[in-house]
Simulated scan of single mutants.
Amino acid sequence: MNPKERILSAINKQGLDKIPCDYWGTQEVTDMLKKHLGVEAELDLWKRLGIDKIINLTPTPLWVPVSPHYVGPSLSANEDIWRVKYAPKVYADGKGVYWEICFNALAGLDTIEEVEANFVFPKADWFDFSTIEEECNRYPNYAIECGYASPLFVYCNLRGMERALMDLVVNKEYAHFVINKICDFFYSFHEKLFESAKGLIDIAEVTDDFGTQTSLLISPEIFDQFFKPHHERLIKLVKDFGIKVFHHDDGAIRLLIPKLIELGIDVLNPIQWKLPGMAPSELKENFGKAVCFHGGVDNQETLPFGKPEDVEREVLYLLETLGSDGTGYILAPCHNIQPITPVENIVALYETVNYYAIL
């Protein structure tokens, strides 16, 4: 099987020659791996490590994406299409850089009238979708992921997290108004995106971060009231185009998983299995027939601070639990591998899955 066949068969819970694996890492880590392995192109890196890489063409329509091309109103430096601004933050003794929010575009606009008078929401016609088909065709043997919709994430970026969460309780009409505007953009953007791809997109994200390290960020009731209808609408759009729905949701989200499955997600990521309620064997038993799991390899302790044998032990554990029936699992780090991670641990991850995951 080639990588695309392997990824899609796992999502469809069909027979496999081996459990597939994916890669998420910061650009610094990718560059470190290329240097360590003596390769120049990322595709050569995936082949060298035996990675069934899901090719993500449009990581997010928050920053100005490479494809589709942004052709809308001019933006200032370090500003996204929502007029949220970012500043670089160096971490890990200079090994890495993250762009953190330094300006929330709606932080000072507390009424619907103020938003309508002072803010312009993005429009789908701010983008040129004409290159999407060509971009997809560049990777004929890989599963293509393109599209990203995240209502709560964008709302928090626009308002600031504290204001956003308070709005859901004390400023509900305002929250509904802004979230509706966000999701109207997501719908029109993705409708044009999928039409332009002409059936070449395999996976798209309808996602959000509803979890914390211990429980949910919002209650199930708040989810139902503010986000469930939008996720349902966006998931239906993805499925109407025959595309698989990838749902990324950090944290301890066990209480929401049945709702997400009811809405129609196909892939659940990142599976932070050390958190409450996220035991892999229980997830597989309760939800393994409904969804494919993606991720699992711990990126908070094992990868950055463990030894290669710890990584090998964890990979085997995940193969025995989330991959227990030989399908419905794509092994990957539970989030972007960070530059504090020893290269030996990353290599051990992929050597282990490629040695032991053959079926």
Rank of each mutant, 00 (worst) to 15 (best):
T327C: 04
W273T: 11
A348I: 07
N171C: 13
P151A: 01
G295T: 04
L260H: 06
P122V: 13
L275W: 03
I261M: 12
V154T: 06
E314Y: 11
S74T: 11
E162D: 15
T321H: 00
G264F: 11
T214G: 06
K198F: 09
G277C: 10
F129E: 08
E114A: 13
M161N: 12
K95R: 13
D17A: 01
E344T: 12
L109E: 05
N180A: 09
P65S: 05
K4Y: 09
V39F: 03
V84I: 14
P220L: 04
P270I: 11
G15W: 00
M161T: 15
D240N: 14
L237A: 05
L57D: 02
S281T: 04
H247N: 14
P342E: 02
G296T: 06
W126G: 11
A92W: 10
L318I: 13
T327F: 00
D93W: 11
E28T: 06
E5T: 15
I346Y: 00
L152P: 05
A77N: 11
Q225E: 15
E232W: 01
F185E: 06
L322W: 10
Y187C: 01
V343N: 02
P270E: 08
A87M: 08
E205Y: 07
E232I: 07
H36E: 15
P65A: 00
L234M: 10
V170L: 09
L193F: 07
A290S: 08
E262A: 14
V206E: 05
E28H: 02
I112L: 00
F177Q: 00
K181Q: 12
L200N: 14
E285H: 05
I182P: 04
S67Q: 00
E79L: 13
Q225R: 10
E40F: 06
K307W: 10
V291W: 01
Q213G: 07
E5F: 14
I201N: 02
T302E: 04
A117Y: 05
D125E: 15
I257F: 12
S188T: 11
K244Q: 03
V115T: 06
V311H: 04
P220H: 01
K274T: 13
D110V: 05
Y91H: 05
P59I: 09
P73A: 00
F226E: 03
Q213H: 10
L57V: 06
P270M: 11
G328T: 10
L165D: 08
F246G: 01
P333T: 02
G211D: 12
G306S: 07
E232Q: 13
T111K: 02
I243C: 00
A124P: 11
K4S: 10
E114M: 09
E320S: 12
M32Y: 05
V120C: 12
E301V: 12
P73W: 00
W46T: 00
E28V: 04
I144P: 09
W99E: 13
T341C: 08
N336F: 02
K4Q: 12
S188C: 02
V71E: 00
I203F: 03
I112R: 01
A290W: 01
L193E: 05
V206W: 02
F189A: 04
K53Y: 03
L37I: 08
D125P: 12
L168Q: 04
G211N: 07
M278F: 07
T302A: 03
V64T: 09
D208K: 09
P304R: 05
D202V: 13
C292T: 01
F153S: 06
A124N: 10
E134K: 15
D202P: 14
K13Y: 02
L331G: 02
F210P: 12
V238M: 03
D208I: 15
L319R: 01
